[in-house]
Amino acid sequence: MPQQINADIRAFIVENFLFGDESEIPGDDASLIENDIVDSTGILEMVSFLEEHFSVEVADPEIVPENFDTIARLTAFVAGKSKAKAAAST
């Protein structure tokens, strides 16, 4: 599951922020801001993508670097959300 989430997030970043250039994608633990991948609009694009693609809800207080600033953190954030959602529905 996290592997697929990770792959989907990476694909979104390549498509939406790097315009297809896979060579520019940073490592899983590299900062997306410090590497100039996302800006203040970009982070909202990311929120929109997570909500629509993974069917999770993101509250404003959750939009923090601890959840969003690296691909690894994004992956863990979505995985946690999905797990909580699955647990709630069973």
């Binding site: 410090e34 203040s40 909202l44 939009i63 923090v64 670097p65």
Partner: peptide, 16 residues
Amino acid sequence: YLANLKRQTPDYLAAY
């Protein structure tokens, strides 16, 4: 006038 900043948390504002 920058609507995008309205939803940002202090940590992100500091990072930007």
